[in-house]
Design a protein around this nucleic acid. Structure first.
Lengths: 321, 321
DNA sequence: ACGACCGCATAAGCATTCGTGATGGAGAGT
DNA sequence: ACTCTCCATCACGAATGCTTATGCGGTCGT
């Protein structure tokens, strides 16, 4: 189970071709064939069907493991690299679409910033592998509850903001007049599935373990990241959408009704490479200012140096003040 | 970053000796020395101080990564091994101390069972690496909220039971007469730190992001797993303890007062090797019986075969019925 | 203070592994 | 039926990895 072998395996599986994979990896086709054979004899299982080249059931499982494994490996490399490398002068921030609200934008340095919009799941990866110096992720959680993030590597996470959630409805919708909505009332409704632009329905399903079986049927799937499009879709009756209240309130042609039960919030967290999941330096309440004085609970530094340095640390500090 | 090199690195770090590590690994001292040198030149960093042999700061970080990596590697091996191996006939269950209540015990098959008590963190590892066929973990969570478990490997988790929490107090304690306690009232109290026997205080601190700073000071640390000892300590005034209500109510010489705020429960989950975090087949309410019919939301099988087989699957089925 | 010892680093030699190039065989398309 | 594509296999050269042997720095004992 050499990482090398795993790397070629995932490549072969992705390209569904030995020779293509060989080209991409800079090997000969023969080497690739031997790699796969080595893996298969090592595990005692066929991993790929040839002609066509496709993973067997066992191969699929190996793909999951291999992906995570290689990711962690890259993360370790990047993490250790930070010890040797000169402190960065530019700042690359990876952010999921809804993690970019005024507060986070205001904390960005004026120059030398690269902002990279990524799907939600890829933000932790980007920070872990060093593609980004910091990350901003959003998601649903109970108030002052940290987000459930895949732990690809030890990352320090800090709560940045929490906002109420709101359901976006067509103005003509029977429930549009309400001042607050319960999720229970909406289980049977049609929802827009917009994993990138909106709030992920899977998270809703997970948090709201509905009575016996899954609700939240999806009507239309939108794969873009534009909130206005999402609102337009919702206004046109293609389904409901769930957005942070400040965002939902700003859309035209649709009504935003706050979600009052269950008590869930839209939460944004800052991710920094570093050891251990650090708890926020206080609750990240809606619009609440942190108690001054002890804002420095996030450990970002290679253990020993006193003050965190570099643009990423600076960004973190400004976000928390 | 060959896993081989990592393996020798962690061994050297653990034993604080090149030659000892060489002996344990079946290598010569020279080979070990070369392994470490290879790692250090590869990463461009010193990882160990010699004389005495101890990890550098960077080395410590590598240890964290390496541990997780090797664990995942073993987990992948074990997981893939399940495809080839003959279905098991015996059942090994890893369980944290408080995960063993009557309901789980009743679901165990009559014969061929090995029950292995482990500290909380090690249960997922044991299931992932195949040391155990199934796992039972407990912890604190919001009602019907899945536990936050380290994802060493894709494990399917199912809620098994949830019980209210109770604070164990000496009978003479001023608050002993109450019918319910709020956690806020107890932040400044002295607590027993009993990570194995009781409910872990770290989880409490994490869940209850207290106002500005950490409460829950620990008075005495108990490293055993016996609940009666814990109760005796609490009764003797060494500190408060938090236990599941059914357990807390059974102790002698102390009083158990239910925790009413925040709304937290003691939750037990079943862990099975398998893909993806599967949500429970319904809420695991206190004493609540599952709605019959669709109890099979846990996928445990190598994708394709119809019904899960083997003692572990049988155990899972009996737990959910 | 000196010497023996312990423990890690380095050097040279040898076996194994790994990747390349060439060749063989099985399907799919024309 | 032929050819083309694609993967498997074989044989060889290069490189890697482990071992034995030796060197060096520090520690402990007398």
């Amino acid at each position: 189970m050499d990482p090398h072998l795993l790397r070629t395996y995932v490549t072969v599986a992705r390209l569904a071709s030995f020779s293509e994979a060989a080209r991409e990896l800079g090997y000969t086709q023969s080497a690739v064939s031997q790699h796969i054979a080595a893996l298969e004899t090592d595990l005692g299982l066929p991993l790929l069907t040839r002609r066509p080249v496709a993973p067997t059931p066992a191969g699929h499982r190996l793909l999951e493991h291999a992906g995570a494994l290689l990711l962690r490996l890259d993360a370790a490399r990047a993490d250790l690299g930070r010890f040797a490398a000169a402190p960065r002068t530019t700042l690359t921030v990876a952010a999921s679409p809804l993690a970019l609200h005024p507060r986070t934008l205001a904390a960005l340095p004026a120059t030398g910033v690269t902002l990279r919009g990524l799907p939600r799941e890829q933000v932790p990866e980007a920070v872990a592998t060093g593609e980004a110096d910091a990350g901003l992720v959003d998601g649903i959680a109970a108030p002052s509850d940290p987000l459930r993030l895949p732990d690809v590597a030890p990352l320090a996470s800090t709560g940045v903001a929490e906002e109420p959630l709101a359901v976006v409805l067509p103005a003509s919708h029977p429930l549009a007049g309400r001042t607050g909505l319960r999720l229970d009332d909406l289980v049977d409704a049609r929802w827009l599935d917009a994993p990138a632009a909106g709030v992920p329905l899977e998270q809703l399903r997970a948090v709201h373990a509905g009575p016996a079986g899954r609700g939240f049927r999806t009507a239309l799937r939108y794969e873009g990241t534009d909130t206005r499009t999402l609102a337009a879709l919702s206004a046109a009756g293609h389904g409901l959408a769930l957005l942070p209240l400040p965002v939902a309130a700003g859309v035209h042609g649709a009504t935003a009704v706050p979600l009052v039960a269950p008590r869930l919030v839209h939460r944004t967290e800052l991710l920094l490479p570093g050891p251990g999941r650090t708890e926020p330096a206080g609750n990240a309440g809606p619009g609440r200012t942190e108690p001054a004085g002890n804002a420095g609970a996030v450990r970002t530094e290679p253990a020993g140096s006193g003050e965190p340095a570099g643009p990423a640390a600076e960004f973190a500090r400004r976000l928390q003040s």
